[in-house]
Design a protein around this nucleic acid. Structure first.
Length: 115
DNA sequence: CATCTGACGTTTT
DNA sequence: GAAAACGCCAGAT
């Protein structure tokens, strides 16, 4: 493959429909590296096309976002996704599981991108 | 039998 | 050469 793995990630993430989210593993698999979910985030960190690559639509397999990484504010991200139609669940609704940004998780059961 | 914790695997910058 | 935006599998409790 001539293009870098990261380049393919941008293409996949860019294909995520509005109102839906994809997990790093999902994007990684579509990019051709099902074992490199970690670097999907790395590639997005590179973010060669800001405003074009909706990194906020890419979440953990648990439905939580990356802790420590916020494009401008973790609160903004939750509102941004919710504004697109993504269903968010407050930490109070959950019994356990690890919380990422604010403990809020995306309802992958209803909003995970159906590639 | 079900659930949780720990270790490892992968590629890029 | 090392570190880094996770995911999946295995073993133990």
């Amino acid at each position: 493959m001539a293009e870098s793995f990261s380049q393919k990630v941008y293409d996949v993430v860019r294909r995520i429909p509005e109102g839906k989210v994809a997990t790093y593993g999902q994007v990684a698999a579509l990019a051709g590296a099902p074992r490199s979910a970690r670097f999907v985030g790395f590639a997005l960190h590179s973010n060669p096309e800001p405003g074009v690559i909706p990194c906020h639509r890419v979440v953990f397999r648990d439905g939580s976002l990356a802790p420590g990484f916020a494009f401008g504010g973790p609160d903004v991200q939750r509102e941004l996704l919710e504004n697109e139609g993504v269903i968010f669940i407050p930490p109070s609704e959950q019994s356990r599981e690890s919380a990422g940004a604010d403990g809020w998780r995306v309802d992958l059961s209803r909003c995970q991108w159906d590639a």
